[in-house]
Simulated assay, not measured.
Amino acid sequence: MKKKRLTWVDVTKGFLMILVVIGHYPGELDFPLAKYIYWFHMPAFFILSGLFFKPVFEKGLMKPTIHKRFMQLIVPYLFFLVSITLIRYGMEIGSGNRELSWYLNDLWTLAVGGRFIRGAYGVFWFVTTLFFTYLFFLWLTKKFNRKKQFVILAIFYIIAHFESIFAMHVIGGKPSEAAQSIPMIWNIDVALMAIVYFAIGYYLKDFWMGISKRWMAAAFTVSVTAVLLDSFKVIDYRLSMKFLRYDHFLLDLVIPLSFTILLVGAFQFITARLSLSWLRKIEQHSLSIMYLHIFADIILNDYFTYGLIGFTAIGLFVPIIVSILINKLLPHGKLLLGGFSPKKKSEPIPT
């Protein structure tokens, strides 16, 4: 049962990672594919992350639990951040950029992170947000009973929407620029929204483990209706967690959940019949794909011309190759790719 469960989770995450790559395609498409991908792919990642959350109640286990999560998320984050930055700076120096103020300003932006770093670092916000979402939820489940947890989550959800209203309608302008008008290191404030999706994965664990046909049908109906209403301009729904754009208090739950239910249910059905090992392989290298797919395009698009398919292929295969090389050639390569596992304390042999 456990093996089957992990199979569909890995396959779903692998497919979502492909959507992440497609969502960053810089070219124009006739169909607003990226818009619909953004409706659900990031919430789905947080939901699936919450699915396997384990609360910690013992005092002595809190510190090692946080340390483990730090090693799995923040160490690879810093590794890829520094690696990409060194290559970028090498390219800048090679092109003749010797302006010290440019490098100092860039380093400050990289330190702040989150929505303030763009270009090659476009998805780095997700990891820091996930880390703080995990910490917040760890604190929530340890300090409060279930009823108080729900109340606090509701307050977080409301605060997140008020922040979005302030950014999108009071500050106004482009969402990316409006969000950057609100100072925040590492997109910690986005955790106020992310923790709600994370909690849905955790609290509804039994539901996610086996999506029924009835729920699949309902999710399909809601998802198709939302796309049709959007295509006929009855609604203009958008969701951008990175840039604090939460357009609708109700739809920000309904639409991401319906698409995630549909996706998870579909892969539970398919993986019961097919292995889809290629999607599992993608999931195994998802960290490198996330960090490197945009940077791979930045380096290669000066030498090659390609459309969406070529962009997606480069965004998947180049990071996978780099991931394999890191694991095989660099000391502690597995650790740098998020493969940290704490050493189990050996128990004394009874005499």
Rank of each mutant, 00 (worst) to 15 (best):
M241I: 09
I349A: 11
L153M: 13
K13M: 11
V56K: 06
L337Y: 00
F295M: 01
L250H: 10
D106S: 08
L337S: 00
F45S: 02
H24S: 03
V20R: 02
G339T: 05
L86M: 09
I298P: 00
A167V: 07
V82P: 05
I165H: 05
A120C: 09
G172D: 09
T305C: 12
S341N: 10
M168H: 02
L287Q: 00
I299Q: 01
S323D: 03
G96W: 09
T65M: 13
D30M: 15
F150W: 15
L244N: 03
D302T: 09
D236L: 11
L135C: 12
N145G: 15
L16C: 06
A44T: 06
E28G: 05
G265L: 03
V196I: 15
F340Y: 14
Y306A: 04
T12F: 10
L153I: 14
R273I: 09
I289R: 00
L192I: 07
E177N: 12
L192R: 01
L153G: 08
W39C: 03
T7G: 10
S275M: 08
L19V: 03
V234A: 12
V196H: 07
A191I: 04
F232A: 10
F311H: 06
L308F: 05
I66C: 08
M216V: 08
I211H: 00
R245Q: 15
I298F: 06
I299W: 03
V9F: 10
L61I: 15
Y237N: 08
K343I: 09
D189V: 11
L336R: 04
K345V: 14
K2H: 12
D247P: 07
E58M: 11
F57A: 11
F40P: 02
A219I: 02
I188N: 07
T133D: 01
S101L: 09
K233D: 13
I324G: 00
A34N: 10
I294V: 10
I255W: 01
L6D: 12
V123H: 01
M209D: 08
V151P: 04
F166A: 07
K68H: 12
L6N: 13
I155T: 14
Y134F: 14
I235R: 07
L81M: 12
W39L: 10
Q72C: 12
I282W: 01
A218E: 07
L107F: 01
S341G: 11
S240V: 09
L244T: 02
S176M: 06
Y303C: 05
R115K: 14
F220V: 05
S101C: 02
I182Y: 10
P342V: 13
I270D: 05
T221Q: 02
Q72F: 08
Q149F: 09
G96H: 12
P43S: 11
V234T: 10
L250F: 14
W125N: 01
F57W: 13
V123S: 03
I349P: 00
S223V: 06
T225R: 03
